[in-house]
Design a protein around this nucleic acid. Structure first.
Lengths: 226, 226, 226, 226
DNA sequence: AATGAATGAGTTTTCATTCAT
DNA sequence: TATGAATGAAAACTCATTCAT
């Protein structure tokens, strides 16, 4: 950027960089806040630490976000705003429904696996009984989730149409079921590990659970009397 | 799991002369701590509030538990120490395996439904990455969970023996699957509500999900090629 | 004791042992308090710790001494009450005055060297500007110190009479001078060690200082013009 | 050694814009801490009282010093960091060695007489068995003390060269001897007063002891067989 | 006289937030 | 805007002392 704007008058160069700077500040604060809130919760999080991690001054943080609680709200919103790469959930239409479903489950696993911090924030918010869920954020949640539900629905409907999936199941229910089995695994890894006495965060363990979920789901979807 | 300080009331101070007094204090502090930690987490919890709710002097709390962190540890342990009502999970042997499984799922729902605070504590501990899980507590977890796993195993094995359940599934995996679908529902009610735009905590909604889980599970367990 | 009183009626045996017990309690509390107050001062000392070290119940401590401050006062008094073994300071009359003086200095060194705790208490009291020095304690101080001063005086006077010590020095001044050089060494060992960069508490270092003090004193006492 | 916040007063906040503010806060806290720790020791000192005396917010104290213990360490360091007025210890070369020595002793008396608080801090640290003596502080001690030792050495050597002082004495030993007799007097004034039944802090009493110390020292330094 | 538990009044420390430059 | 310093309110924790058995 510097190279291309070299030569233009200094005032413009400065105002541009200020805008950019502001955005950079916001986003680096949000990134830092995500990690801090995820690990420590709203109360355990330290404003100083967020500012330090974001490499911005504390005052800048207050300037942009107003207060710690507001920053938490903004972070919560950003969790749903940023993170869904829609295209990843487009099921390949050339696969059989069963394999498309397995592929989708695989994608969901990989997707959630990287959202440790986001899941922690969401869990936290639920423990706060949705106190910070403004209508706007609720809408963001729906927007964010809908492409995933849509992807589930597409595969499900195709399977039903082709007669390989049961008609007795609803797409949203299936979505919730899948997310339950995936998120539960990742968010409860530590206490579950005590039960099964294995490290559930290892690649091998994750792969095992992924296969189980896929098999279980496919089995449940087979048509037949229920 | 909730403390039932049955009987002793007015005459308590005099009649429970011995070290009972100590136990009463301990248990009422633990009960208060459970609620406070569940709602607010380790950092958000207030020692004053716990003491107040427990109707004990704040310093009694320190006398018995040493520090806030230690109290959290003790609370976590108590979550698993309070005995699971084993008999509730004894499947009636006169039911068909399918109905026994449905009955078991029903029991699990009712069981977890009352453990809001306990689930929150466990969620907190997972967010803390198991920092407070001492070996002793880990053992308590296993002891606490094993009768439930055992109940799941019994029904599963009976169904497999009678040829109505698939042999492709492991009892522990099934246990985890069921708990995932149940606990996830209760712990994520608020953000999930934003998605489906319904109040998921109503009896009707819980009943709906319970039926879904049962149907889904039974379907998955049908024998046949996978 | 038990053996000799065996056979006497139980009441007497008990009352005797109670008296004894009381005295034992008092003295073991005082001994524990001495160490605790010496190491930690009045404010830093912990009543719990004193009771624990004395292996008595806290209530016993309060029963016998009333309060922490009173216990400190009692400890301060005991410092001066217990500790001077008069006979040790009787100078051997067959030594020359110079050797008698060296012997006396040696005795003083050995005497103070074992009084680390007592010196700390005294230092503490001085920092408190003598706040706890009741008239009674002041008298105890004089009683306790006077045999030492007397011993110094005897050797000094004998030397003066025999013409080997100067007449220009007062016995009390000499006593204070000696005590200054000895107590200062022991009570400031840690900061002095930083200056001379040696461990002043080693036997060798103490011996060196003892010799210096003796030489210096003897030299100062030689008769001659001042 | 006492802080003299000279000059700045009303305009202080505005005129000392830069990091001077910080330094002023630090130094006024240190000055207040010196008095409080001297009088009450580490445990007896009250952070509130220090902040109040320093006329700063209590939290400013934590901002600058971290904790009570660290403040004690800083205070201890400051005791030795405040520069010894070297020039005061330069002996006038036109005096005879004997008079130079008397002058030096006089200077030492006047010097230590004003260091009541500093001596108390040092006494506390010794009672703490040098627990807070970091290597850095140890070096500060040496640096602080060395000009005094040097002054003692100069007078001693000159006297030895001129044949009026004995060669049998070491400069550091002489320094320690003098400091012992001076500091001991001031730090033990209260218990010593009980012994001699006089008020040792009066000017007259100090003068008497000063003369005694000088006479005793000069006498000890006379050359001759030891 | 002995003991575990309780208590109240402090004391240190923390932390979000704001000021002044 | 950026920064170091300041601040007030609250939080955790401590400790001498007393109670009840």
């Amino acid at each position: 950027m510097k190279k291309t704007t070299r030569g233009t008058n200094s005032r413009r160069a400065r105002s541009t960089s200020l805008q950019r700077r502001s955005e950079l500040t916001r986003s680096s604060v949000l990134a830092a806040a995500l990690g801090e809130f995820a690990r420590n919760g709203l109360d355990g999080a330290r404003v100083d630490r967020i500012a330090q991690r974001a490499r911005v001054n504390k005052q800048a943080l207050y300037y942009h976000f107003g207060s710690k609680k507001d920053l938490f709200r903004a972070t919560l919103a950003s969790v749903y705003a940023d993170t869904v790469p829609v295209e990843r959930f487009r099921a390949a239409p050339d696969l059989t429904p069963e394999f498309a479903m397995r592929a989708l489950i695989n994608t969901l696993f990989e997707f959630f696996r990287r959202l440790e911090d986001e899941m922690a924030i969401i869990a936290h918010e639920n423990r706060h009984r949705g106190k910070h869920l403004t209508p706007k954020i609720q809408e963001q949640i729906r927007n964010s989730v809908s492409p995933i539900i849509q992807a589930v629905r597409e595969v499900l409907v195709r399977g039903q149409r082709e007669g390989v999936f049961s008609h007795d199941i609803d797409a949203v229910d299936l979505y919730m079921t899948l997310v339950a089995e995936i998120m539960f695994y990742f968010s409860n890894a530590y206490t579950l590990s005590a039960i099964v006495q294995r490290d559930l965060s290892s690649d091998k363990a994750v792969e095992y659970w992924k296969t189980h979920v896929a098999n279980f789901t496919i089995a449940a979807l087979r048509p037949g009397r229920v």
